Simulated assay, not measured.
Amino acid sequence: MGTESCFTGAGKKTEANYHYTRALELDPGHVESNFRYARLLEEKGEPFEAEAHYIEALKADPESPNFTFFTLVCLQNMELYMGQGCTSGMRLKLILKMLKLTANMQDCLPDSDTGTRLRSSIKKST
């Protein structure tokens, strides 16, 4: 899957979009393609489309702090993107998803000084 990353790194998002779409047609469950395509979609300002691909990556590797973190950021971006058009029901659903992901993120942090500090920060912010 190196070709797509080269395109996104070189700023050739149209080519990267084509390659990720093609890769996912061939293997819809490919974890790295879903994750990288979600990142690309977010960069293009399409957080709602990105969420589905982050979720696919998380399903394959639910303990990945990287996938959890970026899915959480995506949900926050969705809320910001909706702005005034976000109903209280929509906002509540997003908040519940964020809380669930935050809990998952705490569970997969390492048992180290850094992991302990991150867990403490997460608890203070929720």
Score class of each variant (00 low, 15 high):
Val31Cys: 05
Leu99Asn: 15
Cys74Tyr: 04
Glu51Asn: 01
Arg39Trp: 02
Ala50Glu: 05
Arg91Asp: 04
Glu15Arg: 01
Tyr54Thr: 01
Thr68Cys: 08
Pro62Leu: 01
Thr102Phe: 02
Phe35Ile: 04
Ala16Thr: 08
Glu51Ser: 06
Gln84Glu: 15
Gly29Ala: 10
Gln106Ser: 13
Ile122Gly: 05
Leu118Phe: 09
Cys86Gly: 07
Met82Trp: 03
Phe35Ala: 04
Tyr37Gln: 04
Gly45Met: 06
Ala10Gln: 11
Lys13Ser: 05
Pro110Cys: 05
Glu51Cys: 01
Ser112Thr: 15
Asn17Leu: 11
Phe48Gln: 12
Ala52Asn: 09
Leu24Trp: 11
Tyr20Ser: 08
Met78His: 04
Thr14Pro: 07
His30Glu: 12
Leu96Asn: 14
Gln76Cys: 00
Leu58Tyr: 04
Val31Leu: 13
Thr71Phe: 10
Lys44Ser: 13
Asp27Thr: 08
His30Gly: 05
Glu25Gly: 06
Asn77Met: 01
Pro47Met: 03
Ala52Tyr: 06
Asn104Glu: 10
Gln76Ile: 09
Leu96Cys: 00
Tyr81Ser: 11
Cys86Lys: 00
Ile55Gly: 03
Asn77Asp: 14
Ser5His: 00
Leu92Asn: 05
Phe7Ser: 04
Cys86Ala: 12
Glu46Val: 09
Glu15Val: 06
Arg39Ile: 03
Pro28Arg: 07
Gly9Cys: 06
Lys12Gln: 12
Leu96Ala: 12
Met105Trp: 12
Leu96Gln: 14
Cys6Gln: 10
Thr87Asn: 02
Ser125Ala: 15
Leu40Val: 01
Leu118Trp: 11
Glu56Met: 09
Asp107Glu: 13
Asn34Phe: 07
Leu101Gln: 03
Gly29Gln: 11
Lys13Val: 01
Glu4Phe: 02
Pro62Tyr: 02
Cys108Gln: 09
Thr71Leu: 15
Met98Lys: 14
Ser5Leu: 13
Ala16Glu: 03
Cys74Thr: 09
